[in-house]
Design a binder for these strands. Sequence first.
DNA 1: GTGAAAGCGCTAACAA
DNA 2: TTGTTAGCGCTTTCAC
Lengths: 339, 339
Amino acid sequence: MRRITLDDVASLAGVSPITVSRVLRKPGSVSEALRLRVNSAIENLGYVPNVAASRLASSRTHTIGVIVPTLYNVIFAEYLFALHDVLIAAGFQVIVVNSRYSEVEEENAIKALLGQRVEAIIIAGIHHTPLSRQLLMKANLPVVQTFELSDDPINLNIGMSQERAGHAATRHLIDRGFQRITFLTGNLDHRAQSRFDGYHTAMQEVGLRSMGMIAHRPRHSSVALGSELFGEMHDRGDLPEAIFCTDDNLALGAMQECRKRRIRVPDDIAIMGFHDLEFSACAAPSLSSIATRRYETGKLAAEKVLLALDASTRQSNEQINMGFALVPRESTSGDAGHR
Amino acid sequence: MRRITLDDVASLAGVSPITVSRVLRKPGSVSEALRLRVNSAIENLGYVPNVAASRLASSRTHTIGVIVPTLYNVIFAEYLFALHDVLIAAGFQVIVVNSRYSEVEEENAIKALLGQRVEAIIIAGIHHTPLSRQLLMKANLPVVQTFELSDDPINLNIGMSQERAGHAATRHLIDRGFQRITFLTGNLDHRAQSRFDGYHTAMQEVGLRSMGMIAHRPRHSSVALGSELFGEMHDRGDLPEAIFCTDDNLALGAMQECRKRRIRVPDDIAIMGFHDLEFSACAAPSLSSIATRRYETGKLAAEKVLLALDASTRQSNEQINMGFALVPRESTSGDAGHR
DNA sequence: GTGAAAGCGCTAACAA
DNA sequence: TTGTTAGCGCTTTCAC
């Protein structure tokens, strides 16, 4: 069964192929009589244009490439949602690739996207292999790096200081009177590392000993992992006064484990999360966290890409700091001053 | 700045274009000497193949189309994660389109995917416009409908009975002694409707009055929406003995609102969720729910697609019931028998 | 407003 | 193993 092509439509309608092409792309430039004839031929044949041919001939793909480390994290789902919202509405297709937190896979993803001739790339993170960076710079298309702030952006950069956020979270715990504070993370990706750096600095500033991080394993952050890690920590007998989790999922898991083991939060231990996920406000006790702006980051990134594509001249580098907000709640409200 | 093409690589390496093409696709079929020359030419020029041209020439796209109603729901994120896991590993590209719960947008999505010449389509749901259905049948490619069970599948169908799940959830509440049971939903998509049907039937079977659903608004399910809806219900003064929420997010929001209003769960009101999201086990009280198999559904759908593509002959229709499981927890454990 | 000719960058089929 | 030829299905350019 041969696929129906534009030529088939043209001969059925008794016009030249180019006329069919015009009806499809700029119907206004074709007389009504022909337009109707062509359209009914399209309907009759069930013709669906082949975008590969169109892309090849026009060298326009109307496609934006997006790279995220994982899909299995609400953070990125919210961000992708925003990107889709804006870009689809503007008539672009979005190709999402995940790098599984690997710079090598990211490099492959970049090559794949460039092979697709995407018109812009929006990439989560600022750490890439040298070749990745070089490919992105040479590609001569709008590139947006997101979620973090770079000292040396490739082009556009929309994010926040993970380190300052980690610092603020830790500072909050210190201000509440906690001293033995542990940093808890699953996977140690760049963003978690930066948060840890912020934690470390905050501890040092007030002369406290930073207590390393509990775990480092190649699994995505989840409630279950939080339970596990907390359990192991408790089993080892080194229960701190407070823990700062890189992620609300971990924090919630830790809280769950506390409940099982009859450790009271925040009376026996304070727990601080990160990202302020939707359920965090309604956990019991409610979870203190750092609110981050995933949706807004995606939205802005997409809008900036559209602008850059419109200007069609490569924009000069620009950096936007989306900031973050401390959200103190019950899980860190313990009056730890007089233990 | 002209883009570098395969011909450029060929002339730099002093070979014919087809040799370069072979080095890229089946390196084994080219002598090592030439392969090295070609590869270094590719490196030197920073050549990236144009997939549009490749697709057009080979009429193979190695692309699978996926349609989901929304990205803003963990359910679909987990499912997409599984699809990616399997399909990317098998060397396919995945194009995800969301229909925003609209059959018209779904029809457009189908057209777009067919225009991309995807080699298979995996689509969430079993309700489509007549044209959508016709396009899918005529396209002569593997089609998997997921999440629900169809009486008349287009091709493959991997899902569960939403109605029986709704029935089981309701039955659980009835068995626990609750009688005034309300069904709570935000958006009333097909799956929510089926769950409602199951609820309705279960109520009727034991002679109880089904209490309609509380709300119907075009917003995605969220904790915040659950709070809102529950609040409105309470304000109206019609607090039932139990509520069955179409979604754990709504249920969690309802529980949060209960806590604010000092309504005890499950003593004053029992709450039943749906989907058994990760946080549900560690809510306080822990949330009873229906566990559904999103990841497994996606994995199986992807695997079936690969099989079908391999066989290269259109598979006969097949239906797989993934089932579900009732997960009773604290939020419905109230001993309501003697109120 | 409509069409003819040429070509986008690659690969299938065949030949050497 | 390597190359030649032809063409995938569309759009660009230029002419009418």
